[in-house]
Design a binder for these strands. Structure first.
Length: 568
RNA sequence: CGGGGUGUAGCUCAGUCUGGUAGAGCACUGCGUUCGGGACGCAGGGGCCGUAGGUUCAAAUCCUAUCACCCCGACCA
């Protein structure tokens, strides 16, 4: 491909509303353009990368025995009502009506549709197991789309669904997919970690996520190098603390704390550490208007754990200030003393003695508060997020914390959908059996962003070889003037193509520096510069995007040189 | 959903406070010079100043409404 025929509009300046590098570089390199919030057009260069990612995924899915299908983006409400997710999914499910006023939605995922297919197409245990997959567009009406293609509303996903006669087969299918995913992410050149995960809106029993390690990641993962444990902090169960509660040594006193409505402010105002404070969170309840959750001041509530508690409404919803006042308290000054509502206390807040907490009165806190003596200890639960240094659930040591971008997730669904939708096959005895299901997703568009987060420098993107939009860029110097350069460029291009490389020739009438800068920005892994200087010795210049070194190589061996330096 | 912010050329942004001919840089077009790390000169094209009302002799600028986008928060006790 000649650049004179491929309009790329690179930007020198960083677009104002892009905050993470991958988003900035994708915009600057002309991979994507924003159409509306969370909606992006993929321009030629970006689309090529997407194709490469899709191809690798397709090859590995096929190798693992999965069958490619294609399901509609628009789905009828009936199917979602059958699985009960029409009501359960929430506002992320974009609902639309057709001209006959019939309800439809834009598919955020395809369990319902694929289960419908399976129950109609699969009749006998002899046909199982089957794994259907597709690569296609999903729509989720995200509460806050951000980071460009990383959390978009419309995105490309590879989703696969496996159907099994029994759990044993499901486990085997899950294992096969897990291996396929490892191959995929290895081939994509990503540094990732497999972590235990919450099953969320999809449901099912066991689930793992493939997390690409990146500081800009939205997920927090906890891992322990000693015992091999790795999990999304959402699901890390913490063992109970083994510290005893000291005896009370202070008496409970009311202190004036004007305008001090946060733990941080409270700690500095009173000169006590946050871990000596008790934070009170009020959330909606199912049996009562509110449920109180008590945590140590330096700990964070874990929403997944809180939602599991009996009496706590799902999704977890914090009370608004007006609702707090209706309960006789004041936002910013809530505390357990005199608050007569259902409550849970985090196990790590139980050993607190002589602690500080809100007085349920504007601008006042209590200090010297003690469980049992001043306020009854509520039911104890595991409520908080793990932090670095916590004991690992694996039993072998302390947890470390890292950030990750979730690029894939695999689930053992069980019979959640197949039971609700009556997806059965006849077993060897001729009796109907509900199929066991697994489901397996990869965020294809997100993989592109994640790859950039892990592979860039101050000049631009550095594509891993397997997903680069082009393998090599040929930059002729002074092609307009030098017939020698023009000829060598055309010959080199043909030679590279014959050797199986996707080559891009920058034949634009620009100065060399301009072309080098663009080549670096769009991140083509291998660069060949052709100039009179080199041609006089029968050589051209080779440079890898990953290395600062340039080397002069014989013109007729350039294909071999690149082949030798290519990875993956 | 709550709070904050921003809407002026394709992009980055001035101009708005204090109403009076719509600007700069980048990008784009033409010509010339230049030609190994985002060149320079000259000449150009391009804006319903988000939208709708209002105030005024006069509105990008003041007022009202509305829409869009961005950020923060929703973990604050």
């Amino acid at each position: 491909m000649y650049l004179s025929k491929l309009p790329i509009n690179t930007l020198k300046e960083v677009p104002a509303d892009a905050e993470v590098v991958s988003h900035q570089l994708m915009l600057r390199a002309g991979l994507i353009r924003r159409l509306a919030s969370g909606l992006y057009t993929w321009l030629p260069l970006g689309r090529r990368v997407l194709h490469k990612v899709e191809r690798i995924i397709r090859e590995e899915m096929d190798r693992a025995g999965a069958l490619e299908i294609s399901m509609p983006v628009v789905q009828p409400a009936e199917l979602w009502q059958e699985s009960t997710r029409w009501d359960a999914y929430g506002p992320e499910l974009l609902r639309i009506k057709d001209r006959h006023q019939r309800d439809f939605c834009l598919g955020p995922t395809h369990e319902e549709v694929v289960t419908d297919i399976a129950r109609n197409e699969l009749k006998s245990y002899r046909q199982l197991p089957v794994n259907y997959y597709q690569i296609g567009t999903k729509f989720r009406d995200e509460i806050r789309p951000r980071f460009g293609v990383m959390r978009a509303r419309e995105f490309v996903m590879k989703d696969a669904y496996s159907f099994h006669l029994d759990e044993e087969s499901l486990l085997e299918g899950y294992r096969v997919m897990r291996e396929a995913y490892k191959r995929i992410f290895d081939r994509l050149g990503l540094e990732y970690r497999i972590v235990q995960a919450d099953t969320g809106a999809i449901g099912g029993s066991r689930s793992e996520e493939f997390q690409v390690l990146a500081a800009s990641g939205e997920d927090v993962i906890a891992y322990c190098d000693e015992d091999g444990f790795a999990g999304n902090v959402e699901i890390v169960d913490l063992p109970p603390p083994n510290t005893p509660r000291p005896a009370p040594s202070e008496s409970m006193t009311l202190v004036e704390t004007p305008g001090v409505g946060s733990i941080e402010a409270l700690a500095s105002f009173l000169g006590v550490p946050p871990e000596k404070c008790l934070k009170t969170l009020l959330v909606r309840g199912t049996e009562s208007p509110a449920v109180a959750l008590y945590l140590r001041g330096d700990h964070e509530l874990n929403a997944v754990k809180a939602q599991r508690l009996p009496g706590v409404a799902t999704p977890l919803t914090m009370l608004r200030p007006a609702e707090v006042e209706a309960l006789g308290s004041v936002a910013g000054f809530i505390g357990p003393v005199g608050l007569d509502i259902p409550a849970y206390v985090d196990q790590y807040a139980v050993p607190l003695a002589d602690f500080v907490c809100g007085a349920n009165r504007a601008d006042y806190h209590y200090r010297g508060v003690n469980w049992d003596r001043d306020v009854k200890l509520p039911e104890v639960a595991d409520l908080r997020n793990a932090v670095a240094g916590d004991p690992s659930p694996g039993g072998g040591g302390k947890l470390s914390i890292a950030r990750g971008i979730e690029v894939g997730q695999i689930f053992q669904l069980g019979d959640k959908y197949s039971r609700a939708m009556g997806a059965t096959v006849l077993d060897a005895e001729g009796k109907p059996r509900i199929m066991q299901m697994g489901c397996y997703g990869i965020g294809v568009t997100r993989v592109v962003a994640a790859a950039i987060e892990q592979n860039h420098d101050e000049r631009g993107i550095i594509w891993p070889d397997p997903i680069a939009p082009f393998d090599v860029i040929v930059i002729p110097i002074n092609m307009d003037k030098s017939e020698q350069v023009r000829k060598a460029t055309e010959e080199t291009y043909a030679k590279l193509r014959d050797a199986g490389f996707e080559a891009l020739v920058d034949d634009r009438p620009q100065r060399p520096g301009f072309k080098f800068a663009d080549a670096d920005l769009i991140g083509i892994p291998h660069r060949v510069v052709i100039s009179d200087k080199g041609l006089d010795e029968g050589r051209c210049e080779y440079k890898s995007r990953r290395s600062p070194d340039v080397e002069m190589v014989p013109l007729d061996s350039i294909s071999e040189v690149i082949a030798a330096r290519r990875r993956g």
